[in-house]
Nucleic acid binder design. Structure first.
Lengths: 194, 194
DNA sequence: GCGCATATATATCGATTTGATAGTATGCAT
DNA sequence: ATGCATACTATCAAATCGATATATATGCGC
């Protein structure tokens, strides 16, 4: 399941332009499948070339013409085929966790800052889910499942970070730094690798 | 924080070859920062060209020579700089959730298969974390934090999927692959804000 | 009236990442 | 004896990311 397939899926809901799809990637899909113009426009071109969508232009004054895409029958077939994959992946790419992995190379203040910023982001996510749910009247079960999933993850993350924050930051706010020496006077240039 | 930075971080633990780093990406880092040879080797080349690591070759009979990389002082500086980023990202790319989003376009059997396969994967993750923790004697706080994070997410995911599985699959077990109409107000909705 | 942000719309470009593949040797199990 | 796993290296096309460019219109504060 790549961006092409997701675009195809979005188009089952009605015709849309690349701009429209981008907005959906930025809202409902943002917490589990983000995509930018650099992916969306090539995806639509490719789908069009393969006859999986068709396109009509709606001229507008001032703005460039809207190019509105619509899924074709071939497109629906292709989508069904893609949705048949029984074990779709789920990948996390976390610079946050990578940073925390190396917490021993950072000052306690730096670690605290990273954790607090993450908590703020998570709070923003929570508010986003509130927003979503406020207008979830006509949602499908799938949409509810996915949104609830995001909320559950966010809440579990907040709980975990708040619980373990101190064990990462706690250490004395000064003295005996493991690796992050401030004064380069006594260098470890001797390559003291094991 | 890209692959280059993570490689640099791994090398603070001692010298290593690209192959060694790959193994670490596949084990400890796999649940939040995977990388393949196609990223690792170019990363090491680039680090070498920038003088952030150095390299010595250890010839072996039969196999190609080991190229063992070691972080330099410039490399440590660069790493400290990278770790100073106060708000590192955390991204999810989930074909699983994208698929579930379109559950209404699938048969109940397909949906059930996807959910069950996911649960199996999650169970495998759980066992992986058990494995990790069995030899966590000399771990840093950061490593413990990251591993605990992965376990917490996995457990929360299992709980969520098991709790909501039926609401996605439920509908009559025999059905057309085409989409179905949603029924009004079954009481299982439950806004579990817990 | 001026500058600025935001929204509507399109699209491209370099850099990075992914996923698969290739090569070459040892050793182990079927 | 054949296939498979492990140990090493490495590359390549395709996909994706993130930033940017090009227009115009609307609204907001100063």
């Amino acid at each position: 399941m790549d961006v092409k397939t997701v675009c195809l899926g979005m188009l089952t809901d009605g015709e849309a332009s690349g701009y429209d799809l981008k907005k959906q990637f930025e809202s409902t899909f943002s917490h589990f499948f983000a995509a930018g113009y650099g992916s969306i426009y090539p995806a639509l071109s490719s789908l069009l070339a393969d006859g999986l969508v068709d396109c009509r232009e709606i001229p507008q004054d001032g703005r460039p013409a809207r190019k509105v895409y619509r899924i074709t029958e071939a497109g629906r077939d292709r989508l069904r085929l893609a949705l048949d994959e029984p074990n779709p992946g789920h990948k996390v790419r976390s610079e946050f966790l990578a940073t925390m992995y190396f917490a021993h190379l950072m000052s306690p203040e730096q670690v605290a800052a990273v954790l607090d910023n993450r908590l703020q982001d998570l709070d923003r996510y929570l508010r986003m889910f509130d927003e979503f749910e406020r207008c979830s009247g006509d949602w499908t079960d799938g949409m509810r499942f996915v949104c609830g999933f995001g909320r559950a993850m966010t809440e579990a993350t907040i709980a975990y970070v708040e619980k373990h924050r101190d064990s990462l930051v706690a250490r004395r706010t000064e003295s005996t730094p493991e690796q992050h020496v401030r004064e380069p006077a006594t260098t470890m240039t001797g390559h003291s690798t094991q």
